[in-house]
Design a protein around this nucleic acid. Structure first.
Lengths: 236, 236
DNA sequence: GAGTGGTCTAGACCACATC
DNA sequence: ATGTGGTCTAGACCACTCT
């Protein structure tokens, strides 16, 4: 683990524990560098992480200040996991009901999304996911079998991500998200308790491994009333 | 403008012009440093921008590769502007109809969102925004009058951001976005052509200036069928 | 082992904010 | 004028991938 990430973790904790409180000016760069025994560039990398998470703001000529914690979002790793692994804070129990689990050849559309050849075999998985026993989203997933061998029903009941990272030792590197909405079909009406003529909200997710391969194309469909997505955009 | 941003701009152009094409390996760091006359760290900063934009992927021990351009999103500056200035590609005409323009004292809720004192005066603006003459979203905005003096009706018909950046010479630094949905009220039903019992999708946006002040709290309400939002999450 | 990216440092110099 | 962050460099060393 890189030093700058450790420093970011440490300062993040201090903000969360209100050792540094809203509006407070942090010690300036030189002092922080001294206390963490690091170089200025390293400290900047650390603080830039917190800037991207919306925890602090840095102003040339003025200083570094703690932002309103409530308006910031969880750190990028958690945000990253949000789509499917459902690490929802304060909610104890995440369960899944597997509605479909089969292997099919990729059609034209799928082969483009997954950057594979048409006809290559992929898992086709539909899961209904519950938070505290309340149906929360329908999750339609496609993954190339060549990348994710030996996927079993039991993995689907827990976290597929855990299987990929802990068992297969693959690293998830990035994902491309698109959020939109569409009128519900009987599938969503049945499981998300939507009425006819009511839309669902969909997160389309294309996920990359650290080796550059796309391992997943997922459509997560939510009840519109349950959906929330947060992000922070920082001018470069 | 920083050198690393210039280099990123240059390489981004080469990818968009397909001088570097999908899947292609870029020259490795040393060669790029030579041709741009810069240091390794500077080149890394440049390439990291493109990684965050989803244009390239970097793999330690392997190289730097161009991602599928179609699946990447417009650069951060455009994405940043997306919320309100509506630089929608391929669409010629963005117009606004001002439904409400008044100054009110901030209530408890607003004062928290804008981080001002309750009672401080704020603009309250409701606009209906059209893309190519089609009603596209309703935009409910609150801005402290102390930060944005002399806002006129004419500014609302064009881009408020342009007034803030070009006339007031203030810099917009970051914004916090929250996307959710809620059942439409008569306001949305009337202007977005929604039926009763149909939801709208809302982008809540809290925007910061480079001096750390919050200058805007906006609710942009979209017809659910028109809404799309893209983002890329990269593991740190 | 060779190729390639990632991190860290010391120090120089620049840009902006505030007084 | 002083305080503070931002950028850039040269060079060292480390970590991962490929084969």
């Amino acid at each position: 683990m890189a030093k700058y990430k450790d420093i970011a973790d440490d300062i993040r904790e201090k903000i969360k524990n209100q050792e540094y409180t809203f509006g407070q000016k942090l010690p300036y760069e030189y002092v922080l560098c001294m206390s963490y025994h690091c170089n200025k560039e390293t400290m900047k990398k650390a603080l830039d992480i917190l800037v991207k998470e919306g925890l602090i703001i840095r102003r040339r000529g003025a200083g570094t200040f703690v932002k309103d914690y409530d308006s910031s979002i969880e750190n990028a790793t958690n945000k990253f996991a949000r789509g499917l692994t459902a690490k929802y804070e304060g909610i104890k129990e995440v369960t899944s009901q597997v509605l479909e689990f089969e292997v099919i050849p990729a059609d034209e559309h799928l082969s483009k999304k997954l950057q594979i050849e048409p006809g290559d075999f992929v898992y086709h998985i539909i899961r209904l996911r519950f938070l505290d026993k309340k149906p929360h989203l329908i999750d339609i997933s496609y993954m190339p079998i060549s990348l994710i061998p030996n996927l079993k029903l039991e993995h689907l009941k827990g976290s597929v991500y855990e299987y990929i990272e802990k068992v297969l030792k693959l690293k998830i590197q990035s994902c491309h998200l698109t959020i939109n909405a569409a009128l519900s079909t009987p599938l969503e009406q049945q499981y998300l308790e939507l009425n006819e003529y009511e839309p669902y909200i969909q997160e389309e997710q294309i996920s990359y491994l650290s080796n550059g391969a796309i391992f997943e194309y997922t459509l997560a469909r939510h009840h519109y009333a349950d959906f929330e997505f947060q992000t922070i955009v920082v001018q470069q």
